[in-house]
Simulated scan of single mutants.
Amino acid sequence: MTHWFTDAFRAEFDKQAAEIGRFNLAIFGKTGVGKSTLINAIFGRSVAATGIGEPVTRDSHLYLDTRGTLGLIDTRGLEIGRDDAELIKEVSKYVKQMRSKPVGEQIHVAWYCVRGMDRRFEEVEATFIRTLHELGIPVLVVFTQVPMREGQYHPDAVELARQIEAKQLPIVGGRPFMTYAMRDQFTGQPPYGLMDVLQATFRVVPEAVHGALAAAQTIDLEAKAKAAQRHIGATVAAAGAAAAVPIPFSSAALLVPLQLAMMARIAHLYQLPFDKAALLAVASTTVSTTLGRSAAANLLKFLPGAGSIAGGAINASVASGFTLAMGQAWLSVCQKAAGGSLPKLDGVIDSAAVRELFESEFRKRMPVIRRREG
């Protein structure tokens, strides 16, 4: 059973990885403005490595680094204000080449980063931003390293933002986004502004990549939960459409692929690697198999003619309820796993604790069957 389940889960895990796709972010700005710090703060500490990715084409100065559901397009060897004509040429060529590709291969948004305390914004930077807009790429101007005290941004950053706004550039929101990505241990300046940048990004990227963006980012847990709930809802509807479904879970030929796909998608949303997700899934589905078999057996007593149905069939509402309970319970497991709050024994996740958590959450969400059992 375990070997079969792991193989089946692997197949769905890989399939969901392909379906969720990739969110591609192009990040530009002068050297030293803090692009890597910003990326790491929103997408994870070690995402933006030095010397990023591979050239998008031979001899290109544009580099693409793919990390699961995140693609980062950055430059190497070209500098705005020095090589802006060459950079514009390369970006234009790349964007035009990608237009015939699937949406997951295209650039979805650009962040143009400016150090908020630099006090200057050159016309070549404005030209570059206009070019990106003309190529159909939404552009956010992000001010980095902007000190804030008592809710007030540093006056130098405010003045620079005013100058940029006066240019009426085609940028998202019509203004720069003020940020401070990492807490300053010396001054105590806390991070801020990251959620504003992320939410503005969600608003302008294609809906087809919302799932990939939700999975890639690490600061908006509500966005992950909403994406998971949408997928659970879709799976529940599909389970109901399957109508009469055999029980138990382990032999439910129609439900198994749907439920495995649901579990795999949620695991991706919470960036759980396959080995860890499979371990948690095995522990969880062991419980759901037992509970599903017990719940169905008790419920069938109340269904007219149930005793004559080969193998014991249940109706669509029960299939939906069972799938909903599984999805919500599995979501709880993934959330705790991603947050590092699952108990461990000798450094290894405690499977018994996972089973207990899943069972507790599963039972909470099977009210109809629980009432019948009573």
Rank of each mutant, 00 (worst) to 15 (best):
E86Y: 11
K336T: 05
I266C: 05
E54V: 15
V256M: 15
R119Y: 05
H210P: 00
V172K: 11
V114N: 10
G174D: 10
Q328P: 03
F128L: 00
R99Q: 07
L62W: 08
A329L: 14
V172P: 07
V197I: 13
V318C: 14
T290C: 05
M1A: 13
Q106F: 07
P257L: 10
M98W: 08
F302Q: 15
A85K: 12
D196G: 13
T69S: 07
G311R: 12
W330E: 03
P343Y: 14
C334D: 06
L194H: 12
E90C: 02
G173R: 14
V146A: 08
E105H: 06
F274A: 04
Y180V: 08
R355D: 01
G136T: 02
T323I: 09
F13W: 08
I247E: 09
R175E: 15
R22H: 05
P257F: 13
V368A: 14
L221A: 09
A49D: 04
V287P: 00
Q163I: 13
L221C: 06
Q106V: 06
V47E: 01
G193K: 13
D156C: 05
V256P: 06
G77K: 12
G104C: 03
P55V: 00
P248I: 01
Q217L: 03
A253Y: 08
S36L: 02
A278K: 09
L38K: 09
P138I: 09
N298D: 11
G211L: 05
A227V: 06
V139Y: 12
L299A: 14
A313R: 15
F13R: 01
D184V: 07
Y180P: 10
G305V: 15
Y94D: 00
P343F: 15
S320E: 15
M178Y: 15
P155L: 10
H154T: 04
